[in-house]
Computed example of a mutant assay.
Amino acid sequence: MTRPGRPAATPPESVPVREAATVALVRDARVGGGLEVFLQHRVATMQFAAGMSVFPGGGVEPRDHRSDRPWRGPEPHWWAERFGIGVGRAAAAVRAVVRELFEETGVLLAEPDPAAPAGAPLHDPPGTAERPGAAERPGTAERRALDAGEGDLDSLLAAYGLVLSAHLLRPWDRWTTPLGPPRRYDTLFFVAALPDGAEADGGTSEARATEWMRADDAATAGTLGRLGMLRPTLDVLADLAAVDDVAELLATPRVIAPGGR
């Protein structure tokens, strides 16, 4: 019996499982070989994985499902087969993980669209009139708007004559939150190499700090409890710690268990 005035507890099996996508952004370690990975140390007020060290990512939103604009790289059915999901969900997850990466780190996996009209950009980025020759790519204002839920990734890329670079991503794993937590996610894990000239930052309110760490050091810190990590994060880091460089990582075939873990 529930005490008067106290809401009844939600049965664990009735908690909905939401779609999510996350990406381990990596680069070659600057000393000693191996990989460095970009980690976010989440603020303690988050409703899920509060205070944990995680990869950039988040929920797949309805706006991620609403577009069918082509991208460069494997088609949605290829991603669907690798992850063991429907084609529509696979396409939405690719858009979502690229959107989340841009919102949380400023790294945009996109390139000039060869099908876009030649000449002036379709959209004038803020400040380009005062800065002739500035890069014709979305900036801080567009990033904040997207993070606030305004518009969608494909419309933003189209406005700048860009196309999503799905070929820079690789499918890596799939995990579902077990019964118990008040929020549960079926999360698709991707990996991506930091594009040349790009810089990841900590410009997200979801993290108290961000940093590049060697994958082996991060895996050790998670194993010993020096950094709080959920098991999927730690498992992916252990995989990345065994890789010699980015080229090997991107060339490694990956088999994801049907239904994930």
Rank of each mutant, 00 (worst) to 15 (best):
L109H: 07
P171V: 11
V23N: 03
G73A: 03
R226V: 06
A129F: 08
A93K: 07
A118K: 02
V37Y: 01
G127Q: 14
D244Q: 13
R42K: 10
S53C: 09
G259Q: 09
T187C: 13
R137Y: 12
G203Y: 07
P132D: 09
D196S: 12
R231A: 14
A207Q: 06
A166C: 04
P126W: 08
E130H: 08
A221D: 10
T45G: 07
I256L: 05
L109A: 10
A80E: 07
V246L: 01
G34S: 10
D152L: 03
T176A: 10
E211D: 11
V54L: 13
M52N: 10
R69P: 00
G58Y: 09
A207S: 12
D173A: 15
A110K: 08
R82V: 12
R66V: 04
L250W: 04
H41K: 05
D186Y: 05
M46Q: 15
D201M: 03
D245T: 03
A134Y: 02
D147L: 15
G259C: 10
T140D: 14
R82H: 14
P11E: 07
D68E: 15
L108N: 13
G5V: 07
L227F: 05
V23Y: 02
D217E: 15
V246F: 04
R183Q: 15
Q47P: 00
V15Y: 01
R69T: 15
V236T: 07
R69F: 06
D201N: 15
L234C: 01
L108E: 11
D173G: 15
F55R: 01
E199F: 03
D196H: 09
E75I: 02
A90F: 13
I85L: 12
T187Q: 14
L227G: 00
I85P: 02
A92W: 08
R131P: 00
L169P: 04
A209V: 09
A135E: 13
P132N: 08
